[in-house]
């Protein structure tokens, strides 16, 4: 895999400090990229070490008893319910496992040749992740960033000034980039995207749809 999240992002993810949308994009990437998953595991091990080294704060004297009293009669495994998926996935695309438990809305118009679908209900609206679906060769709406945009290619390909991205590839665009990716010419492109911070659409069209998206 060519395009992976930086160690800074993976460390923040392992420490539990990414907002839900970006964390979901990283989590979906990890299910497709064993190198990144291995790295996160290393950083989680660093978390284990910080736990070993945490200052000892004694609990209330009855804490153990209270917990012991709750041990019996609980089921061990709670599998999160599967979300309702209203958007159809073309070409038998199976969404990465971490997306399965989220509700996914219908495809909606975003720009000519580009549709979007909202994921889940949690978190603040502007940080909520979404799926983007673009016809071959279409340019995704131009926007400038006040925050950071996280994108994961799930199907087809994306291309920008920096590189070419294929399924499993992770793209991070921050405020310094004017990011204008386009879908590859041969196949439609589906990607998962989330914004950490505010996103401002630059084009007139963007300004029109911005209120709809709640950015």
């Amino acid at each position: 895999m060519t395009h992976r999240p930086s160690d800074d992002i993976l460390m923040a993810y392992a420490a539990g400090n990414l907002a839900q949308g970006p964390a979901l994009v990283v989590s979906a990437h990890l299910s497709l990229c064993s190198e990144s998953a291995q790295r996160v595991h290393q950083f989680e091990a660093a978390g284990g070490i910080t736990l070993d080294d945490a200052p000892v704060a004694e609990l209330m004297s009855d804490a153990l008893e209270k917990v012991l009293a709750q041990l019996d009669g609980e089921s061990v495994r709670q599998i999160p319910p599967r979300g309702r998926h209203l958007a159809d996935m073309p070409g038998g695309l199976v969404l990465p496992a971490p997306l399965q438990e989220y509700d996914i809305g219908k495809w909606r118009f975003l720009a000519p040749g580009v549709q979007w679908s909202s994921i889940g209900k949690g978190g603040t609206r502007r940080n909520r992740p979404m799926l983007l679906r673009s016809k071959p060769g279409m340019v995704l709406p131009e926007h400038t960033h006040q925050g950071v945009e996280y994108t994961l290619v799930l199907k087809g390909s994306l291309h920008d000034a920096i590189g070419d991205y294929y399924p499993g590839d992770f793209i991070m665009a921050d405020a310094s980039l004017e990011h204008e990716p386009s879908a590859g010419p041969d196949e439609e492109c589906i990607c998962l995207a989330a914004v950490d911070g505010r996103l401002q659409m630059k084009s007139r069209l963007g300004r029109l749809i911005q209120p709809l998206l709640g950015f």
């Binding site: 993810y13 539990g16 839900q20 964390a23 979901l24 989590s27 990890l30 299910s31 497709l32 064993s34 998953a37 595991h41 989680e44 599998i79 999160p80 990465p96 496992a97 971490p98 399965q100 949690g122 978190g123």
Partner: peptide
């Protein structure tokens, strides 16, 4: 945050796809 962190691979509620 009152939201579920999308990180569960050590819990194995989600199996990685590889």
């Amino acid at each position: 945050r009152r939201e579920r962190y999308p990180a569960a691979h050590l819990m194995e509620e989600h199996e990685p796809e590889f």
